[in-house]
């Protein structure tokens, strides 16, 4: 199949080509301008944090040798040649890992329940009082902007060392993060069931309970499961500031250069996090399928 392409005469073509070149040049200028700003910002911040490529290059050997050391036992043998020696503290670490998971669970559930109570108070379609909405929104915002580990730092002083400050820190951060997501879900619901209940004389509570909640529950559960996944990672490092879980063991091992312990604990953490990711993905797919069936 041959096709002839009619090329317009030069007189007609020239302005079109010029316009094309101009528009491309304008985009290039735009792009170059952005790139210059970016480069300036990079240079500024590189100076600000004392980036030293020379140091990086000189110390890069440390990075590889660090991982190399992680893979050797004190005796000098590779770790997997003697799993019993590598995981010498398996019982203790498993217990701590379990504690970490429980912390994440209790923290997530507490936060989810609080967020559940809060989200109806700050969604535009269900709450008429603008003042109350505003107050709840700001509260949730503060809860999620302050990192959980900062809450943990403060709570460790107030509540003492242990899992309790960690759980509370996770719960507060989760309340803020989930509260926002929940409120977005609530604002997107179908209002007809709610209106129907209002029309039959149902109270505000009845409107929320029978009109809104059935529509949002599976979505809420899915978000909460996702948050649990995030909180497991968070709980693992809360021990760095003394707020329980496996983090305390990990930071001690890193600080005191117990290399094989570090790799053993990290391996357990990575496997555990991956396992939970897979499980939670299944669970969320199940929940979304439940939603689709309704």
């Amino acid at each position: 199949m041959t096709r002839t392409i009619t090329v317009p005469p030069d007189a007609q073509l020239a302005p079109m080509l010029r316009a094309y070149a101009e528009s491309v040049a304008a985009r290039r200028r735009h792009f170059m301008f952005g790139l210059t700003i970016l480069a300036a910002a990079v240079a500024l911040s590189a100076v600000g944090i004392e980036i030293d490529p020379g140091l990086f290059w000189a110390k890069l050997g440390n990075f590889t040798s660090y991982f190399d050391r992680l893979l050797h036992l004190d005796t000098g043998a590779l770790v997997w040649t003697d799993p019993g020696e590598w995981f010498w503290g398996l019982r203790r670490w498993l217990r701590l890992l379990g504690e970490t998971l429980l912390m994440a669970y209790v923290g997530t559930l507490t936060g989810a329940v609080l967020a559940f109570l809060g989200c109806f108070l700050c969604s535009r379609n269900l709450m008429r009082s603008a003042v109350l909405r505003m107050v709840v929104r700001r509260l949730l915002e503060i809860c999620r902007t302050v990192p959980d580990i900062v809450f943990a730092l403060i709570f460790v002083i107030a509540f003492g060392l242990g899992a309790l400050p960690g759980v509370l820190a996770l719960a507060i951060h989760t309340t803020g993060a989930l509260g926002k997501l929940f409120a977005e879900v609530v604002e997107n619901i179908d209002m007809r069931p709610v209106d129907g209940i209002a029309a039959t004389g149902g109270s505000w509570f009845a409107q929320v309970r029978f009109g809104a909640v059935p529509q949002v529950l599976s979505n809420f559960a899915s978000y909460a499961v996702l948050r649990f996944e995030i909180n497991v990672r968070g709980a693992a490092v809360l021990g760095f500031v003394g707020a329980g879980g496996i983090g305390e063991e990990l930071i001690v091992a890193i600080r005191k250069f117990f290399y094989s312990d570090v790799s053993a604990i990290l391996l357990m953490l990575v496997v555990c996090v991956m396992l939970i990711d897979t499980l939670s993905e299944r669970l969320r797919h199940g929940l979304l399928a439940m939603e689709a069936r309704r």
Binding site: I49, E50, A236, I254, V273
Partner: peptide, 24 residues
């Protein structure tokens, strides 16, 4: 996935051992 499941703070501790304390 492996890189992702290690927390930022843990990475920080590892890099401190490599390039020393500080923002780098």
């Amino acid at each position: 996935d492996t890189v992702r499941s290690v927390d930022t703070l843990v990475w920080a501790l590892i890099w401190i051992n490599v390039v020393g304390l500080g923002p780098f």
